[in-house]
C-alpha cells in the first residue's frame, strides 16, 4: 500500500505563507470547498484553512533561532481521528493512505478533532462539517492533469520547495530519500500516531579558517612598495 505524504524542510522554509493561501485558493473552489470566512471585512476575521504557518523562537538572544513551521494534517498511518468518528465520515483511503472526511456524512460532532493531537482539523463554521487537508486529493489523482501538476497546490506554490510530496512507503521516492538522508522526523512520536508527513531539521553550514590560509606567500601585499630599508645599524654591520 502506498502512503502519500508531505515532507517539510524546515531548513529552507522562510515562513512566506504561500502554502497557506495557495491551499485555501485551490480548495475553496474545489472538491473540499467552499472554505468559508467569517467576518471577512470586519473585526476578528476568521476562516477555514487547511494549512497554517507558525513561527517559533528557539533559544535566547543572541543565540536565537527563528523557526517557521508549516502544519497541515499529517495523514497519520495510525490516525486516532478515524476510529473515533461515529459516522464513518472520517476515513483513511486504502489506496494511498490519505485521510479524508466525507462531508455528506459528517455530523459536525468535532470528536475527530479532539482525537487529533496536532490541531489540524478545522470545523467549517458555515457548513458545520469537519474539514482538513485533503492532500489535494482532487489534484493528485486527476489524470487529466499533466504528471508534473498532479501535486498538492501548496507543493507547487512553495517558492523554496520546502514541501516535498511523495509516497513514503516507496523507498525510492524523493520524499523517502529526504527522510532517510536528511534526518526526517515525525511530530509527537509519543502518541504512536505514526504521522506520514515528516519534517526535515535545520542544518548549518559552518566554515573553519586555518592560520595557513591567512599567512601565505602569494599575499598580494607583497607586490606593493618594497619594505622601507632599515635605517641605522644592521646586524650585518656588527656580526662577525
Amino acid at each position: 500500500m502506498s502512503q502519500l505524504a508531505l515532507v517539510i524542510d524546515l531548513n529552507v522554509c522562510v515562513g512566506c505563507h504561500a502554502c497557506v493561501t495557495s491551499c485555501k485558493e485551490w480548495n475553496t473552489s474545489g472538491w473540499a470547498g467552499s472554505l468559508a470566512d467569517q467576518h471577512p471585512y470586519d473585526a476578528d476575521p476568521t476562516g477555514t484553512f487547511f494549512n497554517r504557518v507558525q513561527s517559533f523562537e528557539v533559544g535566547q538572544y543572541p543565540n536565537t533561532e527563528t523557526v517557521h513551521f508549516p502544519k497541515s494534517c499529517l495523514h497519520c498511518e495510525e490516525p486516532p481521528c478515524v476510529p473515533v468518528c461515529p459516522t464513518g465520515a472520517s476515513y483513511k483511503r486504502p489506496d494511498n493512505g490519505v485521510v479524508l472526511v466525507d462531508y455528506d456524512k459528517c455530523i459536525g460532532c468535532k470528536y475527530c478533532s479532539w482525537a487529533c493531537p496536532y490541531g489540524v482539523r478545522e470545523l467549517d463554521e458555515m457548513q458545520k462539517v469537519m474539514k482538513k487537508c485533503t492532500l489535494c486529493i482532487d489534484r493528485i489523482t486527476d489524470e487529466t492533469l499533466p504528471e508534473a501538476e498532479r501535486k498538492p497546490a501548496c507543493v507547487l506554490a512553495c517558492p523554496t520547495s520546502a514541501r516535498l510530496y511523495g509516497d513514503v512507503h516507496d523507498p525510492d521516492s524523493e520524499a523517502s530519500e529526504a527522510i532517510r538522508e536528511r534526518g526526517g522526523y515525525q511530530l509527537m512520536p509519543e502518541w504512536g500516531t505514526k504521522p506520514a508527513n515528516h519534517y526535515l531539521p535545520r542544518r548549518k553550514t559552518r566554515m573553519q579558517i586555518f592560520d595557513d590560509e591567512l599567512e601565505r606567500v602569494d599575499n598580494p601585499l607583497k607586490k606593493e612598495a618594497p619594505l622601507p630599508a632599515a635605517k641605522g645599524e644592521t646586524l650585518d654591520d656588527v656580526a662577525y
Binding site: T46, S55, F56, E57, V67, F69, S113, L187, E190
Partner: peptide, 30 residues
C-alpha cells in the same frame, strides 16, 4: 507532549511568536 516534541526541536526554551493567524480559528476556540 512538549513544544520540543510538538516541533521536533530539542531545546528547553521555545516560544511561539505567531500562530499564523490573528482573528482566531477553530483551533483556538474549541
Amino acid at each position: 507532549s512538549t513544544l520540543a516534541s510538538a516541533l521536533g526541536i530539542r531545546h528547553t526554551k521555545i516560544t511561539q511568536r505567531s500562530m499564523g493567524f490573528m482573528g482566531g480559528s477553530f483551533n483556538t476556540r474549541e
